[in-house]
Design a protein around this nucleic acid. Sequence first.
RNA 1: GUCCCCGUAGCUUAACGGAUAAAGCAGCAGCCUUCGAAGCUGUUGAUGGGGGUUCGAUUCCCUCCGGGGACACCA
Length: 608
Amino acid sequence: MHKQAEAREQVKNIAAKIQTDAEKRDYVHLHDYLLEKVSSEVRDIVRESLGISREAADHMVIEIAPPHVHGDLALNIFDAAKISGQSAVNLAAAISKALELKLPEHLEKIELAGPFVNLFLKRKLFYRESLTEAVRLGEKFGESNVNAGKLAWVEYSAPNIAKPIGVGHLRSTIIGQALVNIYHATGYGVLRHNYLGDWGTQFGKLIYAYQQWGDENKINQNPIAELKELYVRFHKEAETNPDMEDKACALSLRLEEGAPELLSLWQRFKDLSVANFKKTYQKLGVEFDLWLGESEFAGQGQDIAKECLDKKICQKDPDSGAVVCDLGGGIPTFLIQKQDGSTLYITRDLASIKFRVEAARPDVLLYIVGSEQELNFRQFLGLAEKLGYVQLGRAKHIGFGTILSEGKKMSTRGGTLIELEELIAQSIAKSKEIIKEKNPDLNSAQADEISRIVGVGAIIYNDLRQSRTKNISFNWKRMLDFESGSAAYLQYTYVRIRSILKRATSRPSGQATGFSYIFEKESEFNLTRKMVFFPQVVLKAQENNWPHLVATYLEELAQLFNTFYNEASIINTSDILLRESRLNLISAVAAIVKKGLGLLDIKVPDKM
RNA sequence: GUCCCCGUAGCUUAACGGAUAAAGCAGCAGCCUUCGAAGCUGUUGAUGGGGGUUCGAUUCCCUCCGGGGACACCA
């Protein structure tokens, strides 16, 4: 089909651009990070002196020592013990002895406590090196090259056309965009795909409703609201008038067959919707490389069904003639073709994944779709793998919980559904009230700009701060609580640091690589000790598809900063070297906060 | 009925099978003539019940209870 070739060409161009971007990219090598250097010093010594396998040695992980423990860092050897088949206590003793005999460069001493090996850093050296590194890398700190050269295809947002975006698609949009950013930070090239819900029987209903009651004036004035109105009216009237469903079905079949007058109507609805969505995405700071909807794959349903039958993976139901698939393994059977021969959602998804793999050859494909579709994805991906469309395990469904209001799912009928546009507008308005109250000196334009950043940040953070799979209990008050544990808390921390830096008479002398940074207080050291873990946190967030790790980390880092801030004056530090060190320290913290929030797709204001 | 997710302090949430379960809100007691108090310090308070695996379980397995969701011609 002509259209299909065009789409393929488009995808190939996008993939090529992603690849050239990747080639030009200046990657930060993971093994250059200080924490990695310390880790490999330890691993090398242990491997050489104990003769344990590389795999076991690589599974020794350095962590921050718990507060009640003596030591700066702790070596977690439990996995290594399991791999090398020793008891943790014995291995820890052997490791501790080996490290004491040949002390790694960055360590002062070792302490053994049962199965735990506690590490004492040469604090001055560590402080100097960690700060030098963070200052040098600035807002690149945290990135790595672990997945350099790989391509991830991420499908997210995926709203249905002719309907307003609701809070359900909001989660997909926010989580998807965060994962896009996080994947990119670990080296991936990422193709951002908005797979529009622009096909299926609902368009028969919509067209029917339009033909019956459509009002051109209203549609031109407020397209989405009016289209939704038509759709709702259809369902209301269909309750008392059941043959409307059949008429709508007939329309949708004619649409699928390509009836020109219906197609042009459909195209118009789609164009209106997309224009509207783009405005919303702009407010959220979300962007896509590819807008390719389900309709693109509607024509291939029959071929897919035929292939499934030919390969004897699916069967024709003798009574109805529908095509049925049974994957076994406790997965319920499902249809891939209706008895009237028309396609289903899953059939189009199959055509779509085949297309994606052929056109771009991604290393991973992510589908950011609510957990209620978990079964559908097990069926769809199971069948796609069986058909050989995608390699086992490369395509993943990234599910997430529902947004609940008072413990219940938001529903249009119950009047509890919040449309995304409404949510954004209200959040910005409420943020503005708070901002004006907290900082009355801001002029109106500044207050507008800041409340957009803070209001949108509150929405995004409310979603990403907790683990993906859990339901979110939606609560206006909590979302707009700008105290600890909020985006505003992090933004405030950033703004405060910027403010100190502006007031300081000397600028941080970041460029000097040999600069001998010094510290005085425990809280300063604790900050750099926390900072060096940022790249690891980003990596782990990517590996597990857990954006909330970044949020949790940033809160902890910000709190360490605020503690330090409260016990030491930075500008009034009389020792010049110490003052210069502190200015660089807080500047590095600000860079991480900005970078981390950026990974979550949250902006930072200059003042607030 | 089958399958999936979830159950942690009064509330909302953290915790690769690891040391004394971590925060925020709410409550109580403190800290601004000094870099932005949207902050900081202290304090009260929790793993739904019962088994099991393990040197060690909030985490894994079984079971019960409670909440949410999904189960073929919708997406």
